[in-house]
Simulated assay, not measured.
Amino acid sequence: MTGKPATIKEIAKILNVSVSTVSRALHKHPTIGITTQLKVQALADKLGYEPNQNAISFQKGKTYNIGVIIPELSEAFFSAAISAIEDIAYKRNYTVLIAQSHDDEEKEIQLVEKMKNSRVDGLLISVAKTTSGFTHFDMLKRFNIPVVFFDRIPPLKNIHYVACNMETGSTEAVNYLLQKGHRSIGMINGPATLAASGERKEGYIKAMTKNRLKFDPSLIVSCNLTEQGTQAALDNLLAHKRRPTAIVTFNDYVSLYAIKHARNLKIDLDKDLQFVSYANLPLINYMDYAPVASVEQFPYLQGQKAADILLDLLSRKVQSTDEVQAYYNVMVESQLVENKIRNRG
């Protein structure tokens, strides 16, 4: 014994049969008698033979690996989505390869290339906040690798995606603040490159106009989702001639940064300024001062639906480029969740 895995050729040589006979016996082919099958299997077990997965994948045209590219695994939203993807993949005998773009377009491009070179059968992607070009996804089409986008969706036509309805979520958030008596409501939005930023803005505008309030575009300020960017955006709104008494923030992290900065500025977060955010992440429960409400985006459900779509595409395996393909466009409805925990600061 050399310590190396036994091969079909070695089994065939010991039993003095052909390689094809051993291969068929291991696969319980009906043309191979039961006695031969038992002899082959017994020797394979004794020698510690294991099937060559690369050869099997080549033969079947599948690796049973799917790739997932997300901005940050450390974010509770994406870790919840990954849990769902892994749960679905496991049930269908697929392995999940996970990579992080760290919200960098160049790294995302490199990761797409690496996933392609690793011969993944399909890919799930939530795009980076800096991604402004999308030609790297065209390469996947040329290699017949299906892609399903989730949460952060690129502004492209003819794509498969799962996303949360941020427009209705924004409308709910603004209506909630209006009902609490606020009339000057600001928004700290995300980068213009993210489709979700546009959806949040549209929901904000609809809520204001539906309630017969004048829309002031200067009350919507974009940021790059960093703490420094959030601080600058908040300073901008606080210097506004119609200083907001409430602000809708792009997500719970931006809300956390804004609340921290507001406290440093000695702003009374019970009387003078309130926040509503998105995602409804667990971190809200551990904040001394939390947003009064947050829009639930159901990350596990998004991950689940995205994985189901990708595995369905792989099972159908559409080969003809001439065939008109229907695209999955799934929108998960958001839900405004009021924070019942009183401020502890």
Rank of each mutant, 00 (worst) to 15 (best):
G61M: 08
K62S: 11
N65L: 13
N65P: 00
I66T: 03
G67P: 14
G67A: 10
G67Y: 08
G67V: 05
V68N: 10
I70E: 09
P71F: 01
P71L: 04
P71W: 04
P71Y: 03
P71N: 06
E72D: 13
E72P: 00
L73Y: 06
L73W: 04
S74L: 03
S74K: 11
A76W: 02
F77T: 00
F77M: 05
F78G: 01
F78R: 00
S79R: 02
A80E: 15
A81S: 13
A81H: 05
A81W: 07
I82E: 03
I82G: 02
I82L: 13
S83R: 09
S83M: 09
E86C: 10
D87Y: 05
I88M: 02
Y90S: 15
Y90W: 04
Y90E: 14
Y90K: 15
K91P: 01
K91H: 05
N93H: 12
Y94P: 00
Y94Q: 09
T95I: 12
T95A: 13
T95K: 14
V96L: 09
L97F: 14
L97W: 12
L97K: 08
I98K: 12
A99M: 07
Q100D: 11
Q100E: 15
S101T: 10
D104P: 00
E105P: 00
E106Y: 01
E106C: 01
E108K: 01
I109F: 08
L111Y: 00
L111E: 02
L111S: 04
V112W: 04
V112Q: 05
V112N: 07
K114I: 14
M115F: 12
K116M: 15
K116P: 11
K116E: 13
N117I: 12
S118Y: 14
S118H: 14
V120L: 04
V120E: 07
V120Y: 05
L123E: 12
L123R: 13
L124R: 01
S126Y: 02
V127H: 02
V127C: 06
A128H: 03
T131I: 10
T131Q: 12
S132R: 14
S132Y: 00
S132V: 15
G133R: 15
H136N: 11
H136K: 09
F137R: 02
F137N: 05
F137E: 01
F137V: 10
D138Q: 12
M139D: 12
M139E: 14
L140N: 09
K141D: 15
K141H: 13
R142C: 09
R142D: 14
I145F: 05
I145Q: 06
P146S: 08
V147Y: 02
F150R: 08
D151G: 04
D151L: 01
I153N: 08
I153C: 04
I153P: 07
P154R: 11
P154L: 09
P155N: 09
P155S: 12
L156K: 04
L156P: 00
K157P: 00
H160K: 13
Y161W: 02
Y161H: 11
